[in-house]
Amino acid sequence: MNDPARTISRTEAEELLYREARLLDTMQLREWLGLYAPDGLYWIPIDETQPAKRTASLVYDDTPSREERVYHLEQLPFPAQNPRSRTVHMVSNIEVLGLDEDGSTRVASSQVIYETRTGDYTQIGLGEISTIVASVEYRLVRLQGVIKIKLKKILLINREMPQGNMTFIV
């Protein structure tokens, strides 16, 4: 159960966000799955002003969908990740914004993700570094004493514009 009596500090939030960045950049995706609460959501909207059920999002992953995403990345070869992406997540501007109605702690961050494909860098579509820039909002909860992600909402600054290959985890 979430324990609202113990709020989540900025230091605790920072530790979690940095850890998530490292797990993604080192492809420890099973461990990444474990950062989420059972009802957690990994969400990249195009139009965050519309109800997610009634509009298409870039990603709208509940727990089964996150598991499918990790299985896809780890177990199945597919053209968009063959060769693989390499990423570095830069996380900054972390701020605890306060408690949400449901007792979760709202945390703001700014993130810049650099991505490149490995392989023959002389070829079209490979050998470039792409940049993803986003405001990333989290809702964090403490479950059995462990802080978990209830929501990771990624607001790309170019969310209604053309998107490149986002088959790695943002």
Binding site: S57, V59, N165, M166
Partner: peptide, 30 residues
């Protein structure tokens, strides 16, 4: 709503279909 979720799953830039087609178009040109 169900059709929208299916649309996201196959056709989005982080989905399991269209992004592979787009990858193929670049390797066609290559």
């Amino acid at each position: 709503q169900g059709m929208l979720r299916s649309h996201e799953r196959f056709y989005g830039p982080a989905g399991y279909g269209a992004v592979d087609d787009v990858e193929v178009f670049a390797l066609n040109q290559q």
